[in-house]
């Protein structure tokens, strides 16, 4: 990061295009990273709907929760660009505040993702046996609901249906069937491709958080981050926004399209 200043002590090196070497490298890297995520997304789509066993996307996704984490990541992009703008204006205090909030929002997104992974891995399916909307059940819910036939009032019974062990018991006077249908990378093709794709995106976010955090702490050292050397922040910001646009694609392609079968 410090190489920019250092070289300025040497002779002035003009570049052929007038563009900065490091910024050009960053853009070439982002173009290359498009191919990386493109291949992962292609793998996900090729295998979409090809899983032999559940749980499927419609069983585990919670769009409202993911919408919130998507919103947080989008806002972190805004905060990042405001941090950069503050730095170029020379307002170090505002720069640090916006940068810190970017880091916090990035960490929040990661917390959401951790929660989501944990939730999926321990996913519980609970159905009420006399649910009036039983017609809208997913296949997995219907499978669990099919255990309701062995309901004995006041008792808890266990039934094995396919790969699931379903508990049927009484709760508040209703018959309820419940099972754990966890999704891990080994469960099915959906789990394999979903965790790999979102996991690598999460790894990119983690790297970004570390990078931004380093800049934040470094900005307290004299001459660490200065308005003149805003390129150090500019490059981190480009990376951060790229991670954001990748998530825009993942949110649509993986989550919102998740409900379509055979697609």
């Amino acid at each position: 990061m410090a190489q920019v200043t250092a070289a300025s002590h040497g002779e002035h090196e003009a570049t052929t295009t007038g563009l900065n070497h490091r910024k050009m490298l960053m853009w070439a890297f982002l173009g290359s990273d498009c191919m990386f995520f493109g291949s992962l997304i292609a793998t996900y789509l090729v295998y979409k709907g090809k899983s032999k066993a559940g749980p499927f996307p419609e069983d585990v996704f919670s769009i409202p929760v993911t919408s919130v984490s998507t919103f947080v990541l989008l806002m972190s992009s805004m905060s990042m660009v405001l941090a950069y703008a503050a730095l170029t204006r020379g307002n170090m205090k505002a720069f640090r505040i916006w940068l810190a909030s970017t880091v916090i929002m990035g960490a929040t997104f990661l917390a959401f993702q951790t929660f989501e992974f944990y939730e999926f891995a321990n996913h519980e399916v609970v159905v009420e046996c006399n649910d009036p909307d039983a017609a809208d059940w997913t296949d997995l819910q219907a499978k669990v609901g099919s255990a309701c036939g062995s309901f004995v009032a006041g008792e808890e019974t266990e039934v094995t249906i396919g790969e699931y062990t379903v508990k049927v018991f009484e709760e508040d006077g209703h018959a309820v069937a419940e099972t754990t249908a966890g999704l891990t990378p080994r469960t099915n093709l959906f789990g394999t491709t979903f965790f790999t794709l979102t996991g690598f995106h999460g790894a990119h976010v983690t790297l970004g958080v570390i990078w931004l955090l380093s800049l934040f702490f470094f900005s307290f050292r004299k001459g660490g981050v200065t308005p003149k050397r805003n390129l150090d922040v500019d490059l981190a910001a480009l990376y951060w926004h790229f991670v954001d646009v990748v998530w825009i694609v993942i949110f649509t392609v993986v989550y919102l399209f998740g409900v379509f079968q055979g697609f």
Binding site: T43, S51, K52, A53, R186, N188, L189, T192
Partner: peptide
């Protein structure tokens, strides 16, 4: 590598991998 290390299903035909 994930198939080999973590038992994922990318190229594991019994689970539908291709």
């Amino acid at each position: 590598m994930f198939d080999r290390k973590f038992g994922t299903n990318f190229f594991f035909t019994p689970a539908g991998g291709n």
